[in-house]
Design a protein around this nucleic acid. Sequence first.
RNA 1: GCCGCGGUGUUGGAAUUGGCAGACAAGAUGGACUCAAAAUCCAUUGGUGGCGACACCGUGAGAGUUCAAAUCUCUCCCGCGGCACCA
Length: 845
Amino acid sequence: MPKYDHKKIENKWQRFWKKHPELFAADDKGKGEKKYILDMFPYPSGDGLHMGHVESYTATDIISRYWRMRGKNVLHPQGWDAFGLPAENYAVKTKIHPAETTKKSIETFKAQMNMLGLSYDWSREINSSDPEYYKWTQWFFLLFYKNGLAYKSKGKVNWCESCQTVLANEQAEGGVCERCGKEVAQKDLEQWYFKITDFIEDSGETSGLLYGLDKIDWPESTKAGQRNWIGKSEGAQFKMKIITAPAFGHPSSSEEGTGEVLDKLLEVFTTRLDTIFGMTFALIAPEHKLVQELKSKITNWSEVEKYIAETKKKSELQRMAEVKDKTGVELKGIKVLNPFTKKSISLFASDFVLAYYGTGAVMAVPAHDERDFAFAKKFGLPIDEVIKSADGQSSVVKEAYTEDGVLINSGEYDGLTSGEARKKMTQWLAKEKIGRGTINYKMRDWLVSRQRYWGAPIPIIYCDKCGEVPVPEKDLPVLLPTDVDFMPTGESPLAKSKKFHDVKCPKCGGVARRESDTMDTFVCSSWYYFRYADAKNDKEFISKAMFKKWLPVDLYVGGAEHVVLHLLYSRFFTKVLHKLGYIGFDEPFAKLRHQGIILAEDGRKMSKSLGNVIAPDSVVEQYGADALRMFEMFMGPLEDVKPWNTKGIIGISRFLERIWKLNKGVIASGAKQSRGGAAKNEIATSPTAPRKDKIETLLHKTIKKVSEDIENLKFNTAISAMMILVNESGGGANLTKEQYEIFLKLLSPFAPYIVEELWSQLGHKKSIFTEKWPEYNAALVKDETIQMPVQINGKVRAVLTAPSDISEEEAKKIAISDTTIIKWLGGQEPKKVIFVKGRLVNIVV
RNA sequence: GCCGCGGUGUUGGAAUUGGCAGACAAGAUGGACUCAAAAUCCAUUGGUGGCGACACCGUGAGAGUUCAAAUCUCUCCCGCGGCACCA
């Protein structure tokens, strides 16, 4: 038997598997139960795979191999999220066309995946930058367009100066570009949007983005992230009269009638209508159009104008840095009337009020809102307390009391709880016809157009006569021209290609021009999981039959960085298809898990700049792909963040070496047995016979444990169970050939290379992956005897050997008559004896 | 600030979901083999006390529920991740 040479073995079986794709292919005509096991398709970067890829891809590979051996029809594909800014930015840097760099990166990625022994069905490989693929991305755009779900609109958008394009809100979180990390500016531009906000709430048969979360098996943190992003808040919206105010007089002392009532109204949104008697001023966003409309009535206009100009200059980041220090300016000459108290109050423009949320204006209740409190303190405005906590404590002097409570100083509403008051006050608003209960969301529609080159062109044509005309479906794909100067200028690169830009109108044949923006790459990745099921279909993006056969995805594994972006958009696409009657389900991913980040040995994130990156290739070179696969699975739970530990992989290496030697041990002991004629009495009288029984029992327990652990993605404990078995195998001498073969099958999803090799060395002609997964013998898994602890007051005082099905009566009897227990009891009468079937006895004295 | 997750030996982590805490590994120490080293094998390895059998303590801190708590409840502390002036 030669030494374990991982390089040689891995080379050999890579070639073998490549020649036998049928081993891992999903069968469109297969009758067995389907399992769709999916990895998030990677963006092929020039850096190659990192440890995190290895972790999640190994996990899904193990599960896929397991289900195949259990006779399931497994769909386990892979593809490339190839469009996008990183590839384009890299191209800009190197002046090499993104199509070229992407192609090269894909080759690297694919080679690395094959190196790791990942059992993908490559016949379904997709590439989002391939016209065959983005033809359907464009088809989706048209589908949305025709159903009123894609529209063009002018408004404030996030603009990344560094990437020279607009970004979706989801890509500009915290005022920073999701791609390059640079600050994002606000610009007024006309852009394309998808109507994702139409799908927040359930509608008809289709569950919404919000409550659909309740029925899927996803990590709580991810669901919370999406709910948070949607940001639903229930409250009330109402209009307040605006009056001109005399130049003199205290803000809250003038009554209605002292000024002229203007024809403009100030509408505000609040979730705390119960605090309205404490409203001592109101706030409006500086960009609010009402500010301009009131210009003639504002006596300090130059001051106001200056403030507006200042805030315009400030970036979102600067605004956020000022959270503590509120700025603002009073709109002098006008007042607002509180509809409940009829008192007039001052109106301020302040940049902490967001123009795009709610109505762009708010009522300020400094006694019960931290921000209003800070503002009131700074500007010396009155703080009127109107809510008391249930225990009567009040602390409004130092800080705002923001909890619900009981109303005071609120006229007829005094004594009501906050909840009751909100209901009654909302009813009053409706009766007075000045307001109503409303719901607001943080999430806005998805901005999908980009002024960049490396993406799917938006299939719209602008005709001087007909206006906006969708490209007819038969003309798809709208090809991305390859001869374009893709250096970013802020204008879409496609506009510079005359050949692309100038077209005939599909309606009237007149002069027209193409939309020159491309689509956000997240559009491409919002539907890719459908395409695998029917990757070669050139008539439809997927046939109905294949939809039915393969979807939804049973298990989806990928990084947690996609909590709001990709995962939310994909759900949106699925819901659109459901609503339009294409599919019978409305959630694409039944079960989702995120792999935890693998940190560097120093506990920090692996990064090129820190120089602490460990590349999978170097580990495979030294220890082999099997060792890397197993070690990453052994390090800890899939979802945990774990530091890499080069020393730790030794343990797995030793384990694999030991398994390699098992072969020899088993063959040797097998030979011995057959030479001895395997006489019955020999086995019975052999001193190894009880050990053989023990190992058979252990083997069946291991089958059970490994199977269950794989299904629950608990790979670390599955591996430790197999280690225990190997530790008990006596170097193979305790194992029969049959037992050893069963063990190899258990190991095969984890370490496919070494197992294929050992399997063939046993004389098998066919791949082990054509074998059936072993079933355990339920009778063997059940212990005949247990080690039953006997506790006194919860402390273990003796451990007795007892039959596992011992009766309560019998257990208590042997417990109480045990000599050490008698000693510990010291003659005391037990007050109570507790028996837990199959577990323990606890004596209470 | 809000939301989510977590805190167990020297380290990564186990614990049948309320029933013997520390499985399996790594590291360390001692030993065998070796001229020697590596590899391999064997033994020990939560803390304290004891020659010892053994005893006591021990899962971030404190309380509670229970015959029994790493696990459930409450309060607090710390760490990680996400969101963050969303009215």
